[in-house]
């Protein structure tokens, strides 16, 4: 046996090697863009990129929780749209701002909890349950609005997207806050511990007396909550809540999570990786726009980056660089 000190330090590096890898990927990307265009590395552009990353990044937090339990949530984009129009109609009906925001968050959470209950009590596979919710939430949003966007809000509300503190946009501050909380929850709380345990081995966790159904439901509820939060920010940003908002966001959120090193098999990964993953996607889109690359090529590049990121991850794993 080796001395504990060395083993521990090694352990720390092994533990975070994956996130360091993703981070260096982001830095290399930044370096390349810095060389390619003078417009990339400016304070205003970096804040611009951070702001653009917020919506997907916040949705991806919920997705990370879900994927850590070895699940999947395809409904986040639709739930986002639904929560957005509910909140927007509350605002238009003259509801006080905090109440309307709460309405959006509750709508998202309820959709998520329904997903959770379908999966735990109804024993549906997560893929199917959330696929159904994806359609139901979208359809409900369309029916509710008659397909038309709800737009035009007070300056107070719009401040959530347009406001700045020391030049940092409010959505970026919200995003950082959410990630700090999520990191804390995953590493320091019972909920976090059980999230990893359920993804690692659901049966062993159940046999250890953990109420697996309850915690899984909570995790899907969280995914819905974060969709609701993203809906608020998106609505404020566009000054409009669209029933067709958030289409395909589930795929972007999954991509950010996976690029960030969370295993689709569950039990492995963390939210810091997801944040970096979301930033990589935003930086990539930003850079490709700055360079004036055709939108067709952009899709190819983004897809390739996702594949390469996961390939590198798997190759490193096979070589036993980290566990």
């Amino acid at each position: 046996m080796r001395p504990n000190g060395i083993a521990l330090r090694q352990n720390f590096l092994l533990h975070h090697a994956r996130q360091l890898g993703t981070l260096s990927g982001l830095l290399v990307l930044g370096l390349v863009l810095w060389v390619l265009t003078p417009h990339f590395l400016t304070l205003s552009n970096l804040l611009n990129v951070a702001e653009q990353a917020t919506i997907i990044a916040i949705v991806a937090v919920g997705m990370t929780f879900v994927i850590l339990t070895a699940g999947i949530d395809l409904s986040v984009g639709s739930v986002l749209a639904f929560a957005g129009v509910v909140m927007a109609s509350a605002l238009h009906a003259g509801a006080p701002l905090p109440f309307a925001l709460l309405a959006g968050l509750v709508t998202g959470t309820v959709c998520g909890l329904v997903n959770g209950l379908l999966i735990t009590l109804g024993r549906l596979p997560p893929f199917i349950a959330t696929l159904g919710m994806m359609s139901v939430a979208r359809g409900t949003a369309l029916m509710y609005t008659g397909g038309r966007p709800i737009s035009g809000f007070s300056e107070n509300f719009r401040w959530l997207a347009t406001g700045e503190v020391l030049r940092v946009p409010i959505p970026v501050i919200v995003m950082i806050g959410i990630y700090a909380i999520a990191f804390f929850v995953l590493t320091r709380t019972k909920l976090g511990r059980y999230t990893y345990a359920i993804g690692g081995n659901e049966e062993a966790t159940h046999l250890s007396g953990v109420n697996v159904r309850f915690y899984k439901t909570v995790v899907y509820g969280l995914a819905g909550l974060f969709s609701g939060l993203a809906a608020i920010l998106l609505t404020a940003r566009l000054n409009s809540a669209q029933p067709i908002a958030g289409m395909m966001y589930e795929l972007d959120a999954i991509a950010a999570t996976v690029i960030g090193g969370t295993s689709l098999l569950g039990g492995e990964g963390n939210v810091l990786g997801t944040l970096i993953g979301a930033l990589i996607m935003a930086v990539l889109r930003n850079g490709l726009n700055l360079l004036g690359v055709s939108s067709f090529l952009q899709q190819v590049v983004i897809g390739s980056v996702i594949i390469v990121a996961v390939l590198i991850d798997m190759a490193l794993k096979r070589r036993g660089k980290y566990s």
Partner: peptide, 29 residues
């Protein structure tokens, strides 16, 4: 392996899995 342990978690996390409550206050471990 399939029922007793969560292989991807650490020794410590496995040891405490049934009794996290004992070390938890206000949801924090």
């Amino acid at each position: 392996k399939s029922q007793g342990l969560v292989l991807r978690l650490s020794v410590g996390e496995n040891l405490c899995l049934p009794s996290v409550d004992k070390f938890t206050s206000w949801g924090m471990v």
